[in-house]
Write a protein that binds this DNA or RNA. Structure first.
Lengths: 340, 340
DNA sequence: TTGAAAGCGGTACCAC
DNA sequence: GTGGTACCGCTTTCAA
């Protein structure tokens, strides 16, 4: 394990010259530079980031805070972030902690306080999250992937618009009895993204003069729970809606599976629209509003690195794209067809 | 941002005494210790890990290398690792790189070479992976989560035994026409764990005198691909097996879905057994060999931290538990029932 | 264009 | 039990 002193000696120059040659900061003659480079190569020299950080204050390391790993959305974001970080020469330190959990507390008290990173990326923060202020006050570049948050730079899809788009898709097809499936159950911490989606749904229903028949059914954002919730919602054929707006693809897929098991034909007797663009959506021919969380992760890294490099750091909202992909889980309602 | 010098001054002691009081190494009177602690608290002092690492050589950071994030098994491992790391006061640096990928190369050349960690955890390495030697030669504690590998400490389930258990479960129920679904397709890099599972299947079939009817059908380890492969395998009712051993739960679930769509009753007309203990297994009433990747991650951290603390580092194989959970996707084959 | 020397923020040795 | 001081490995003035 050779240090820069060894490299300098091997190249016949001083430590300072070696440092300049290797980092590219400061004047070094072309000839010297290449000699130093060769020596470094030969010795297998790799700079100690620790030592460098100690003096420069830069760590080439980003902290990423996610509530969970094992969920499609978060996993995709992590992959996107990691990918662009590594190609930028940065390390990724991962923290997993649900908002308001005990882990969260120690995270802020001990880990982030060490400031062993140049910037922070957080995913799916809630507006009332105490941590937001703390993160902002660390004074390091900080960016949120998820909904808009006051005072900080954020990146994400517009969930209100998405809720509305999903609903309007069904309305346009002629549905009038449309339920929203995936409202956060009372037992769970509230989630802003879901709330915004359901708000979009309600707005669209209201505009269509259907406020009276709007209903928000609870379910957590998982396939099994979506399945269970759909199964109980669809069990009673008299109250069954003709269209379901699902809070995410996992719920949408759970709904499709539940419908099949109950002998309800999709889309003939039931239309299902969801949002995400999950890997499984195509297999279940799910009509969905696709977003690209990996791309959001990459874009977030780009923006964060810009800030680290000194770009303007005023809080901005960056809107991530989302587009409707129509598959075979949505169609006009049965009575419409009958009328034709 | 106060340093230890500020703390020392505030407590009226020297830097060395402050350091001893705070780190707990060396003698300090109780009285002094508490005064220093108070001062540190008051000033919001947090030690710079960088500076400490520079002199101690310890970073309190672990590198975790996974091929993917967004798959149930890997995601669960990551969560387990993160959880126990954080409670041990360690940071997690995450690297995502498929074996033999280009990312992999830069990972070793640039990132791991910086040695900014006290140990390395790698998941799902292949035996012919060039990186294994490199990792071992870094001289840092190194542990593999996955199959056994020569010369290094590993932790994981015994996939051969699992393949055999799955098959024997079906054999015991009376099945004789059993296919293995999930052999690695030729287009994919070979995967040792899958190979071991299929080898266990073949061994069990051979022992039962059924080597002639054994077959290995290709599929990647994803639900959509398991679905597609099962759909084509099951389409021809004349050649359809009565039992399927799936290489993982995703494939098993895909198979169940395919069977339902083809109108094949599970388990009456088709038994499906798989392995993993995926979150969705229960919902699909899938009989499976459960393993606990999060627990494996936690255990791996425990072992690694022991090594870092100086424990014996001779390579050992740690076997992770796996147990058969019988649900409603397996039953005696139809002809058996008919005979009763 | 290059080199000497001062420190970044701690820890650890040694003498007191 | 405590303080002085060298030093971890690098970057960065400043002078030559």
């Amino acid at each position: 394990m050779s240090g820069i002193a060894d490299v300098a000696r091997a190249a016949g120059v001083s430590k300072s010259t070696a440092s300049r040659a290797l980092t590219g900061r400061g004047y070094v003659s072309e000839h010297t530079r290449s000699r130093v480079r060769d020596a470094a190569e030969r010795l297998g020299y790799v700079a100690s980031t620790n030592a460098a950080s100690l003096v420069t204050g830069r760590t080439h390391n980003i902290a990423l805070i996610v509530p969970r790993v094992n969920r499609w959305y978060f996993g995709s974001v992590i992959e996107g972030v990691e990918r662009s970080l590594i190609s930028a020469g940065f390390d990724l330190t991962l923290f997993v902690a649900e908002p308001d959990s005990r882990d969260r507390e120690s995270l802020y008290a001990h880990f982030l306080a060490r400031k062993r990173f140049d910037g922070v990326l957080a995913v799916a923060l809630e507006p009332d999250d105490d941590d937001i202020e703390r993160l902002r006050d660390y004074g390091k570049p900080f960016l949120h992937i998820g909904n808009e948050l006051p005072g900080i730079t954020t990146l994400g899809v517009d969930n209100f618009v998405i809720g509305r788009m999903m609903t309007e898709h069904l309305l346009t097809l002629g549905h009038t009895d449309i339920a929203f499936l995936g409202r956060t159950p009372p037992s769970e911490p509230s989630a802003r993204d879901v709330d915004d989606r359901s708000a979009g749904y309600l707005a669209a229903m209201t505009e269509a003069g259907l406020a009276g028949s709007a209903r928000l059914e609870p379910a957590t954002l998982t396939l099994p729970d979506g399945y269970a919730a759909a199964a109980s919602l669809l069990a009673d054929r008299t109250s069954r809606p003709s269209g379901i707006v699902a809070a995410c693809d996992e719920i949408g897929i759970g709904t499709i599976i539940a419908a099949r098991r109950l002998g309800i034909a999709v889309p003939a007797q039931l239309s299902v629209v969801a949002v995400d663009g999950h890997d499984y959506a195509d297999m279940f021919t799910l009509t969905t509003i696709e977003q690209d969380p990996a791309a959001q992760g990459e874009e977030a890294v780009r923006l964060l690195l810009e800030q680290i490099a000194g770009a303007d750091a005023r809080p901005v909202r960056h809107s991530a794209p989302a587009r409707l992909v129509v598959r075979a889980s949505t169609a006009p309602p049965a009575h419409t067809l009958a009328a034709v």
